[in-house]
Simulated assay, not measured.
Amino acid sequence: MPHGDRVLGPDPALLPVGRQGDRTLYWNCATGGQVLLGPEAVRLVETLRARPGSVAGSSALQERLCEAGMLREVRPGEPKADRSAGGGPGLLGAPRRTLPEALADPECAVVAVGMPYDVGATGRPGSRFGPHHLRASSRALFRAAGLPGLPGMYDPVRDRQILAGVGIADVGDIEADVHTRNGDTFTALERLTGAVVSAGRLPVLLGGDHSSTLPAVRGVLGARPGIAVVHLDAHLDYGRPRQGEWRADCHHGNFMDWIVGDQRVVRVVQIGMRQLVAAAPQGDPKLVRWAGSSAVGRAEDVLAVLPPEVPCYVTVDLDVLDPKELPSTGTPLPGGLTLADTVALLEELCRRREVVGLDLVELLPDGNPLSGPVAAELLLRTLDAACAGRRSRAAAV
């Protein structure tokens, strides 16, 4: 739309996420902000989405939308990349995209998002740097960009292509000038995850501290109620089931209280816990636990308590691993699972159950040159198994 000597168009990061009466709620993927627009403003934004530069709406309305960040100057030939995503390739070498672009691409099956947040940590801070470090490490293992036809990459150990036919987009990080504890960025993450699942894609969350799993699971539940949560961790992160308000009390050591307490979650499986606690946590019929290394080599037993028809959200705290293999985490504990055992278990679970959400959290870059590649390898293998399982189920329908 001409506006003075400028041509205006909608910010490419805008996504309509809901309705309130005759008004439409838009969310800005770049800023995490939201705005309600009336019918006239919606017509203007949607007209410009289809035809940037089209004349529509009053100049006063145009000015108000520019001030609100809903419209921006469009330069000829300007790329549509999400400014929040930064430069260069994303997770596993995937292209950087805005969320609307990713969801509009029929070849995009996986949407990665970073949560550079550690306000919920109670031990060492620093996991806010995890998403960036994980992306950089992952690109040394797998390169999704620049390979026409989505062939994946050949694995000589497994003698097959990894992530063959899987389109991946990285929409960048959910950021704020200052992350308030359990604040607006949690709301933004919940809405983003819900939008991705509603579109039939697989969200992959890169943490950040483990409390960010709660809004991600809530987003999945909004789109797919009736899920199981598979939780790998050295710590229980659970004391008793809780419902209702969580923003005042939730942190990375208790977020599972609200997941177990959510009636839309039908099963919770905890694996790898070995932290000493003052008293045993409260039991719950939906909760099953394999403490320490008791789940190693017992994938069939774990699968037996995950009903085949129930989709799963998988959350992996990297301190589930033996710190001899990955020391770079906020609260490392002696013992733990090996990378090989963890990968074998997750590959079996994710291949044979529908995975509707996945996260990897609590990577705290501290200069150790091996922790990033170990974390990236765990994510790569889990994601490959989850996508293979989703494809096989789709083919069987």
Score class of each variant (00 low, 15 high):
residue 324 K to M: 10
residue 335 G to A: 02
residue 41 A to E: 09
residue 265 V to Q: 11
residue 349 L to M: 05
residue 118 D to Y: 04
residue 27 W to G: 07
residue 325 E to A: 10
residue 2 P to H: 00
residue 136 A to L: 09
residue 33 G to A: 14
residue 207 G to T: 09
residue 30 A to G: 08
residue 34 Q to V: 06
residue 217 V to K: 01
residue 6 R to K: 12
residue 22 D to T: 15
residue 267 R to L: 05
residue 188 A to R: 06
residue 363 L to R: 01
residue 78 E to H: 00
residue 210 H to T: 09
residue 326 L to Y: 12
residue 362 E to P: 02
residue 224 R to P: 08
residue 176 A to Y: 04
residue 21 G to L: 06
residue 21 G to D: 07
residue 79 P to T: 04
residue 283 G to E: 13
residue 352 R to E: 03
residue 182 N to I: 07
residue 47 T to S: 15
residue 390 R to A: 13
residue 374 V to T: 13
residue 234 A to D: 08
residue 8 L to P: 00
residue 73 E to A: 03
residue 305 V to P: 03
residue 158 R to A: 14
residue 304 A to I: 06
residue 234 A to K: 06
residue 230 V to M: 02
residue 92 L to P: 06
residue 37 L to H: 09
residue 299 A to K: 02
residue 235 H to I: 13
residue 253 G to V: 03
residue 40 E to R: 09
residue 238 Y to F: 12
residue 359 D to H: 02
residue 225 P to K: 01
residue 90 G to K: 01
residue 36 L to D: 11
residue 330 G to E: 12
residue 263 Q to P: 07
residue 81 A to W: 10
residue 94 A to S: 14
residue 164 A to M: 13
residue 138 S to G: 09
residue 4 G to W: 01
residue 198 S to N: 05
residue 53 G to S: 00
residue 159 D to F: 07
residue 316 V to F: 07
residue 258 W to M: 03
residue 312 C to V: 15
residue 317 D to C: 08
residue 377 E to P: 09
residue 382 T to V: 07
residue 57 G to F: 03
residue 53 G to L: 00
residue 127 S to T: 05
residue 276 L to C: 14
residue 221 L to V: 00
residue 150 L to T: 05
residue 60 A to L: 15
residue 303 L to F: 03
residue 333 L to R: 14
residue 244 G to T: 08
residue 176 A to D: 13
residue 180 T to W: 15
residue 16 P to R: 10
residue 220 V to H: 01
residue 217 V to R: 03
residue 366 D to W: 02
residue 66 C to A: 13
residue 137 S to A: 14
residue 84 S to D: 08
residue 225 P to M: 04
residue 150 L to S: 07
residue 235 H to C: 09
residue 170 D to M: 07
residue 191 R to Q: 08
residue 368 N to C: 14
residue 323 P to K: 02
residue 371 S to P: 10
residue 268 V to I: 12
residue 333 L to N: 12
